[in-house]
Amino acid sequence: MRWLADVHVALRPGIADPEGTTIAGGLRSLGYPVTEVRAGKSMRVAFEADDAAAAETAVAEMCRRLLANPVMEVATWQLRADETPGDDEAIPA
């Protein structure tokens, strides 16, 4: 069956994030009392796996091998079964 994983990759806490700092400055200039922004990437991955356990294992491996570099990044994800497999409209970013 098909699964959808929404993966979020962010810099590890404590690593300077100049992009996030710049965005925070932009929000403050609009008048919002923003104390911090951490920038990151989000990816939606559609893939096949036999069951939830196998899907979870696969996503963890994808993150470890390619989607995040553990030296500087942390990956988190939400996994769900794709209720409408074959419908490419299910994959808009």
Binding site: L11, A16, P18, E19, T22, N69, V71, M72
Partner: peptide, 17 residues
């Protein structure tokens, strides 16, 4: 080389962008 694990560490966005 860093991504391949042939050298330690990583190269991040310049601190001034």
């Amino acid at each position: 080389l860093c991504e391949a694990g042939m050298l330690p560490g990583v190269l991040l966005r310049n601190d001034h962008l």
